[in-house]
Measured scan of single mutants.
Amino acid sequence: MSGNGNAAATAEENSPKMRVIRVGTRKSQLARIQTDSVVATLKASYPGLQFEIIAMSTTGDKILDTALSKIGEKSLFTKELEHALEKNEVDLVVHSLKDLPTVLPPGFTIGAICKRENPHDAVVFHPKFVGKTLETLPEKSVVGTSSLRRAAQLQRKFPHLEFRSIRGNLNTRLRKLDEQQEFSAIILATAGLQRMGWHNRVGQILHPEECMYAVGQGALGVEVRAKDQDILDLVGVLHDPETLLRCIAERAFLRHLEGGCSVPVAVHTAMKDGQLYLTGGVWSLDGSDSIQETMQATIHVPAQHEDGPEDDPQLVGITARNIPRGPQLAAQNLGISLANLLLSKGAKNILDVARQLNDAH
C-alpha cells in the first residue's frame, strides 16, 4: 500500500501541473516587456503551470559599433537563445518575429505568432524639431536608422535628408537623439515604442507609400524545439490566425527572394473581405531603383483552434497545428507568387547589386 502511495506522490510531482516552463529572452527592456506579455497570456491559459524567465545577451546586443547589415552573420539576435533551447536550458524563446530568419536551424520551429501590433515605422524627432515631419525637416538634416530597408525607401522619398546608421537598443538610440546634436530624427518601429509606453515620442507614423515595413514587423514569434510536442501544444494558444497568415505570406515572399538583413526588402499586408493583399518591394541601397507589386488571394481566416493538420510540417519556419492547413498554404503560395513576379521584373539584379555594395563598404 505504502509503495503505491509513493508512486502516486511521484506521479503528482512529475505531472504537468508541477512543471516549471523556462522562457528565454534577450536582456533589453523591450525584450523583457514583450516576454512578460507572452508569459502573462500563458499564465492565464495555464494557471497550474509556473513560468521562469531567463534573460541573456546576444551577438546583436554586444556589437554596437557596426551596422547590422555589415556584421555579416545571420541570427544576430537569436543564436545564443537557440543555443540555450538546444541544450534544454529553456523550453521556449520569445523573439520579435522580424529577427527570426525565414529558414531556422534544424530542430527549431516557430510554435506561435502572437497578435500583431502596429507594424509601421515611426519617426521620433529631436526636441528642437518636435512638430515637424520628415518632409518639413531642414535641408541636409541627419536621420538615424539601423535599417537598409528604411534608408533606401526614405532616401527616395525625401532626397533633402541624409540617413546615417544608429545602433543600440531603444533606450540607447533615444538617448543619442536627445543628448547629442548629430541626429534631427530617428526611425523606429511603432510597436516597440508603444510597448515601452513611449507613445508621446511618436512624431509621425510612416504610411506604406512612404515606407513599407519589415517582414514580420510588429509581431512576436515564440520559438521552440520542433519535436517538443508538449510545448508546441502549450504555445499553440498564442497563435493569432490573421497575423499568422499575413506573416506566412510575408516570410514566403522574403524567403523566395532570398532577402535578408543586408538587402532592402519591404512588405505591406492587409486582410479585407476574405482577401489577403500582399505588397512587396525591393530597392537599391540608395533607393534610386525599385520594383513594387501587389497581389491578392482569397483566404478564409479560420477561428482559433479549428482542428489543424496533425502532421505539422513547417511552413517558412512556422508550425501551427491548430490552424487549418489550406489557408496557410494559400498564404505561402501568395508570397511565392509575388516573389516570382518581382524576380521576373529584375528584382534579383537589384538585390545582387545591393548585396555587393553593402559587402564592399
Score class of each variant (00 low, 15 high):
residue 355 R to G: 08
residue 51 F to I: 11
residue 72 G to K: 04
residue 295 M to A: 12
residue 200 N to T: 14
residue 316 V to G: 08
residue 59 T to W: 04
residue 344 S to C: 10
residue 273 D to N: 15
residue 107 G to H: 08
residue 201 R to M: 01
residue 259 G to L: 11
residue 236 G to E: 00
residue 183 F to C: 08
residue 161 L to I: 09
residue 140 K to W: 14
residue 66 T to R: 09
residue 320 A to H: 01
residue 51 F to P: 12
residue 287 G to Q: 00
residue 193 L to V: 05
residue 102 T to Y: 15
residue 267 V to M: 15
residue 345 K to R: 07
residue 343 L to S: 06
residue 209 E to P: 15
residue 64 L to K: 13
residue 46 Y to R: 08
residue 209 E to L: 05
residue 329 L to F: 11
residue 247 C to R: 03
residue 286 D to T: 08
residue 228 D to P: 15
residue 241 P to Y: 01
residue 263 V to H: 04
residue 188 L to H: 12
residue 192 G to T: 04
residue 84 A to P: 06
residue 260 G to R: 02
residue 158 F to A: 09
residue 271 M to R: 05
residue 89 E to G: 09
residue 238 L to D: 12
residue 123 V to G: 07
residue 131 G to I: 05
residue 343 L to V: 15
residue 196 M to Y: 12
residue 345 K to V: 05
residue 95 H to A: 09
residue 278 L to R: 03
residue 137 L to S: 07
residue 315 L to D: 04
residue 251 R to T: 05
residue 315 L to M: 09
residue 346 G to P: 00
residue 356 Q to K: 07
residue 357 L to S: 15
residue 339 A to G: 15
residue 91 D to L: 02
residue 246 R to I: 06
residue 127 P to F: 10
residue 197 G to A: 04
residue 52 E to A: 14
residue 167 R to L: 09
residue 44 A to R: 13
residue 123 V to S: 08
residue 234 L to G: 04
residue 300 H to Q: 10
residue 89 E to T: 10
residue 90 V to Q: 05
residue 249 A to Y: 00
residue 303 A to H: 02
residue 282 V to F: 09
residue 153 Q to T: 05
residue 324 P to R: 13
residue 317 G to C: 14
residue 303 A to K: 14
residue 214 A to K: 03
residue 77 F to P: 02
residue 180 Q to V: 09
residue 292 Q to R: 09
residue 286 D to P: 08
residue 129 F to K: 04
residue 145 T to S: 10
residue 258 E to N: 02
residue 294 T to I: 13
residue 317 G to Y: 07
residue 357 L to C: 01
residue 152 A to Q: 04
residue 183 F to V: 12
residue 119 P to A: 12
residue 298 T to H: 09
residue 74 K to M: 03
residue 322 N to P: 09
residue 105 P to M: 10
residue 311 D to W: 09
residue 185 A to S: 07
residue 68 L to R: 11
residue 216 G to C: 13
residue 216 G to P: 00
residue 340 N to C: 01
residue 348 K to N: 15
residue 312 D to K: 02
residue 261 C to L: 00
residue 89 E to L: 10
residue 277 Y to G: 03
residue 141 S to Q: 11
residue 66 T to V: 14
residue 174 L to E: 04
residue 133 T to R: 13
residue 221 G to E: 00
residue 101 P to C: 02
residue 243 T to P: 05
residue 47 P to T: 11
residue 131 G to K: 08
residue 118 N to W: 10
residue 48 G to L: 13
residue 40 A to S: 09
residue 40 A to L: 09
residue 62 K to N: 15
residue 44 A to K: 13
residue 239 H to D: 14
residue 311 D to P: 09
residue 239 H to M: 05
residue 109 T to K: 13
residue 304 Q to D: 01
residue 208 P to Y: 14
residue 194 Q to A: 13
residue 287 G to Y: 06
residue 131 G to N: 09
residue 211 C to M: 15
residue 307 D to T: 06
residue 137 L to D: 03
residue 63 I to Q: 06
residue 120 H to V: 08
residue 189 A to L: 01
residue 226 A to P: 07
residue 77 F to I: 04
residue 260 G to A: 05
residue 81 L to H: 11
residue 132 K to G: 13
residue 296 Q to N: 12
residue 186 I to K: 03
residue 293 E to W: 14
residue 229 Q to S: 04
residue 98 K to Y: 01
residue 312 D to I: 03
residue 315 L to I: 01
residue 80 E to I: 09
residue 218 G to R: 02
residue 116 R to Y: 04
residue 207 H to G: 11
residue 246 R to L: 10
residue 325 R to C: 05
residue 280 G to L: 04
residue 174 L to F: 14
residue 319 T to A: 09
residue 109 T to I: 06
residue 133 T to Y: 08
residue 240 D to E: 15
residue 57 S to D: 15
residue 99 D to T: 01
residue 307 D to R: 06
residue 320 A to W: 14
residue 99 D to H: 06
residue 130 V to Q: 11
residue 144 G to V: 06
residue 164 R to F: 09
residue 152 A to E: 05
residue 210 E to T: 08
residue 267 V to P: 03
residue 143 V to L: 11
residue 53 I to T: 07
residue 253 F to W: 04
residue 137 L to K: 02
residue 110 I to W: 02
residue 256 H to I: 05
residue 318 I to L: 05
residue 356 Q to T: 03
residue 95 H to G: 04
residue 62 K to A: 11
residue 76 L to W: 10
residue 182 E to K: 06
residue 312 D to E: 10
residue 198 W to Y: 11
residue 251 R to G: 04
residue 288 S to Y: 06
residue 300 H to F: 14
residue 144 G to T: 09
residue 200 N to H: 14
residue 310 E to M: 15
residue 211 C to V: 13
residue 317 G to L: 03
residue 266 A to K: 08
residue 117 E to N: 05
residue 245 L to A: 14
residue 92 L to F: 10
residue 144 G to P: 02
residue 320 A to K: 05
residue 172 T to M: 05
residue 209 E to H: 10
residue 334 L to H: 01
residue 163 F to W: 13
residue 301 V to D: 12
residue 165 S to I: 08
residue 144 G to L: 06
residue 330 A to D: 09
residue 327 P to S: 05
residue 151 A to R: 11
residue 240 D to C: 13
residue 82 E to I: 02
residue 227 K to D: 15
residue 57 S to T: 06
residue 221 G to C: 12
residue 113 I to Q: 05
residue 132 K to M: 13
residue 206 L to Y: 02
residue 256 H to C: 12
residue 199 H to I: 12
residue 38 V to G: 02
residue 236 G to R: 13
residue 106 P to N: 13
residue 338 L to C: 08
residue 120 H to D: 10
residue 134 L to G: 04
residue 77 F to C: 03
residue 291 I to N: 09
residue 133 T to N: 14
residue 97 L to A: 10
residue 286 D to C: 08
residue 187 I to H: 01
residue 111 G to D: 03
residue 190 T to E: 03
residue 292 Q to P: 07
residue 225 R to E: 08
residue 306 E to Q: 13
residue 167 R to E: 01
residue 301 V to C: 08
